[in-house]
Computed example of a mutant assay.
Amino acid sequence: MDFALNAWHIFNQSIGDYHLTDHVDEPQKQPFPAGSLEQLLYSKNWIDTVQWHLEDIIRDESITPDQALLIKRRIDASNQKRTDLVEYLDSWFLNHFIDIVPAKEATINTETPAWALDRLSILALKIYHMNLEAERQSATPEHRAKCTTKLDVLLEQKTDLMTSINQLLADIENGKVKMKTYKQMKMYNDESLNPVLYQKAK
């Protein structure tokens, strides 16, 4: 099975579903069975897609400081959900490969399967929106040409990243790569680790 291609289709299904309304408050769809790998991948991209548009909104210079603060809080919460879901996905992969005994000479990859999929999810969003810009008729021909050039690079990155993800999974399955994960241990959302927060509690 071409795992990366399957993930790519799921990511783009999420992006397409979001843009049916194109609103950051649209409830997440549930097209796959709860708890399935497909649903996890879909949820991962939905979080990324909503956050993509929140990042657009917060850059509107006409929004009020109060509005900007609320959006910043949403982005912070979204980042935490994204990290938590990526780590949950890595737990899924760890369990999936639990019976694999790595070879003595097995190496460790610089990133886990889930964090590679995180990059693929973001890349799907970049390609979707760059394609819109490359075809936007209200833009100048020069703008469309520049975006078409950028789109070509993104599509090359897609091919390379998907190939790398499939190779990584094959290498783990064959014992050539040892799967090892670390929690991100983000500190700024933790009231016991962020000095700004815990000093206020004194």
Rank of each mutant, 00 (worst) to 15 (best):
L20F: 07
E61N: 13
I71R: 05
T21E: 15
K183F: 09
L94W: 01
L197G: 06
H53S: 08
S43M: 07
L168W: 01
N95L: 14
L132K: 13
R144M: 12
S192H: 11
E156W: 05
M130V: 13
T83K: 09
K200T: 11
N95P: 00
W52F: 15
E111R: 07
K158S: 03
D160Q: 11
I47S: 02
L168K: 00
A68I: 04
H96Y: 15
E38M: 06
N95K: 15
I63W: 08
G35D: 05
Q51S: 07
L54K: 07
P102D: 03
G16Y: 11
K176V: 10
E191Y: 12
E111P: 00
I10G: 00
I98Y: 04
W8H: 03
T163P: 00
A103R: 12
Y18R: 06
L20S: 14
T112K: 02
K126V: 07
R82P: 00
M185C: 06
A103Y: 01
P195Q: 11
A134H: 07
E156T: 15
N166P: 10
I47A: 04
A201V: 09
S91N: 13
F97V: 08
T64F: 06
D2K: 10
M162F: 04
D17W: 09
E191Q: 12
T181C: 09
L120E: 02
N189Q: 11
L197D: 09
S62K: 14
V24R: 03
L89T: 03
K150Y: 01
N6G: 08
I122P: 00
L193Y: 07
D84I: 02
G16W: 08
N6D: 12
V50L: 03
L169P: 03
L161G: 02
S138P: 05
L70D: 13
H23K: 15
L70G: 13
L40S: 13
G35Y: 06
L69F: 13
V153P: 00
Y128G: 05
L161W: 01
D2L: 07
K81C: 06
I98H: 11
M130A: 10
D17S: 13
M162R: 11
L70W: 10
H129M: 10
R82V: 01
E173W: 10
L54E: 09
D76G: 14
A7K: 00
N174E: 13
S36R: 08
I15D: 03
T21W: 10
I122R: 14
M130T: 15
S121T: 07
I47G: 01
E26K: 11
K180W: 00
I47P: 00
L20I: 14
E87F: 09
L69K: 14
N95I: 11
E173I: 02
T140R: 14
H23T: 14
Q80N: 09
N131M: 10
F32T: 00
L94I: 10
I165Y: 00
Q28A: 06
E105W: 08
C147R: 09
V153Q: 12
Q51I: 03
E191K: 12
Y182S: 09
C147L: 03
D22W: 11
R119E: 12
M187Q: 12
H96K: 15
P141L: 13
M130K: 11
G175I: 04
I127T: 03
I63Q: 05
S62Y: 06
A114M: 06
